[in-house]
Design a binder for these strands. Sequence first.
DNA 1: GGTGACGGCGCG
DNA 2: AAAGCGCGCCGTCACC
Length: 393
Amino acid sequence: MIGNFWKNLKKKPKLGELQDKIFKFAGRDFNINSPAQLGNILVAMGIFSAEGGSASGGEGKIKKTKTGKISTKENELVKLRGKSPIIDLILEFRELNKLLNTYINPILKLSFKDEKIHTTLKQTGTVTGRLSSEEPNLQNIPIRSDFGARIRDAFIASPGFTFAAFDYSQIELRILAAAAKDAKMIEAFKKGVDIHKFTAANLNNLPMDQVTDKMRSRAKTINFGIVYGMGVRQLAQSTGMNLTEAQKFYHEYFNDFPEIKKYIEHIKNETKKTGYAETLLGRKRFFDLEAIRGNGFLESQMERMAVNAVIQGTDADIVKLAMVAVHKELDSRKIRPILQVHDELLYEVADDIIKEAVPRIRFIMESVYKLAVPLSVDVKIGKRWGSLVKYIK
DNA sequence: GGTGACGGCGCG
DNA sequence: AAAGCGCGCCGTCACC
């Protein structure tokens, strides 16, 4: 259900103020929502310094879009902070504008008389076996930014019910570790340690208690990146390392977890041989081998897609099994499925049975499929979607 | 008035 | 030359 949270959310005036300030710095009016116009303004202001060829530092290179225009995406703008206050104003304008025009206004319009929002889940909408959600898409409701999280608070449980959110913890990395039969990482998951910290400890040859936040953060990036086939450049970019360090980091990772490297190679080779990648449960994603023949870039792209198809696809398979199992075993009148967000199931549970229901749902989800590592589910409960609190066993 | 490509960005 | 997977949706722009 949608509460009245957003009705007194006065963001329009703020947006107008930001627009005025931006125009003042720019020296003239223009359409902030047009990347083309914005790019021109920034060039005219000298913020995108048209660097001469002599620059040896390599910084300040203007990133172009695939059609050859100047890129004004957040990553690029952030680098230009400090050159002008206009940068931060634009970023703030973008965030507010996005949240208002993509979520708050359209979703209010889609609110039924019963004050509920009803999405449509497509069962065949993706290549990996995930569901997708549309009109509205409830699988991408904000949560990461502070203001974004407030949008979630407008979603409230029905009277007499409480939200219970069940989140598979690091399920993709678990699938990878199990499928690759990597003894070291399997052991870590069995012990239930903080996996990113564990990875960092291995990468830096340190005991776990000497891992710094920065080391953990970098390990987390590479743990996720591995699954998607992230390259050295991107790794460097997103961790703040230089290319040489990033290269070394990769090397170290595959040294520490050799089975993972072997398994990823195995997926790539099998896909190139058979033309398909297969989840652990046997669902296949096919590729057109003819179309990529002789094109190194397309081949690499297919390899990344294949690795992802196995990991993300197995994840999707498991979550679907869990949805079915919960439905079969429990009373859907008191435990209502509200939403699936890829590795998370949101239920609305009658207040009087919440204490028994939560452990049962958790158990079903954790035991629905057996891997070489345990599946672990985090639970949060609460009356508002944006204010759920961890449920302690 | 409608359509599709594009840049951009929200989520997992 | 390109190099992070999977989605849906916004506004702009070019075009019919």
